[in-house]
Simulated scan of single mutants.
Amino acid sequence: MYLINYASDDFQKNLQKSDIVIIPVGSVEAHGHHLPLGTDIFSPRLFCEMIERKIGDYVWIAPEIPYGQSYDLSVYPGTIHVPSEVLAEYVYAVGKSLYENGLKKLIFLNGHGGNINALNLASEKLVQLGMVVLTINWWLDFTKEILTITQGQGHAGEDETSAILYYDERLVQMDKATKNLKKPLYRVYFKDRGKVLYENAMSGDATLATKEKGEKIFELLTDKIIKIILDIREERYFVEE
């Protein structure tokens, strides 16, 4: 149920169907020479479209938050960077208002690694209101599943490029796809980190990407995300072994 498609009265009437809301969160950021700046917006958007088709009456879908924390890639043209503390406060305010409107369970469907700190900070504050909050980082939480389809992962790498080829192959310039096989040894921050680690604004091997791989990623991961949504709906938060 796309929140913004409902009139106010109709939203209130349909609130009994679900108290779960998804907020897709992305970034406007350089992704190599071959992918669009909106790559991290488009993947969560498509997941939401597929979720809507399969279990539309079970979950509300809020408008996406398009801007994110993109300090590392801000050295490349077109990247819009919002500091983590600013993003966290904004996201918290949005989540708080959703909570006050009767949506008690919130899922951040995140498309961008730089957002994780901000989403964690916002989640800590939202939980204190009584809200149930979960962040899904699709490329990170489902690494094992993705690597059954692709040989590797990376920023604008094989997995992300495949995803956007499936989303809309007209947005991808595969003739400009490259590879950057540098992998950081540690989670260390240093000057010019973005230029050094993300040479050409990417990592991994984008030349291996295909639309077919992207389709498999979205189909497999959508089912995984739906399972999580249904667990949250039934308040299944743990298992006993």
Rank of each mutant, 00 (worst) to 15 (best):
M1D: 01
A7M: 08
D9K: 15
D10Y: 12
K13S: 14
L15I: 11
L15Y: 08
Q16N: 06
K17N: 08
V21S: 02
I22Y: 02
I23N: 02
S27R: 07
E29H: 09
E29W: 04
P36S: 09
G38R: 04
S43A: 12
I51Q: 04
D57A: 09
D57G: 03
V59N: 02
A62W: 05
P63I: 11
G68M: 08
P77R: 10
P83N: 08
E85Y: 14
L87K: 06
G95W: 01
G95S: 03
E100T: 05
L109P: 05
L109M: 04
H112F: 03
N120C: 01
I146D: 06
I149K: 10
I149L: 09
T150R: 01
T150S: 11
Q153E: 12
D159H: 01
T161P: 03
A163C: 15
Y166L: 09
R170I: 11
V172P: 00
M174Y: 11
L181K: 11
K182T: 10
R187H: 10
R193K: 12
V196S: 11
D205Q: 11
A209C: 03
A209K: 06
K213L: 12
K224W: 04
K227I: 00
R233V: 10
E234Q: 15
E234L: 15
E235I: 10
V239P: 05
E241Q: 11
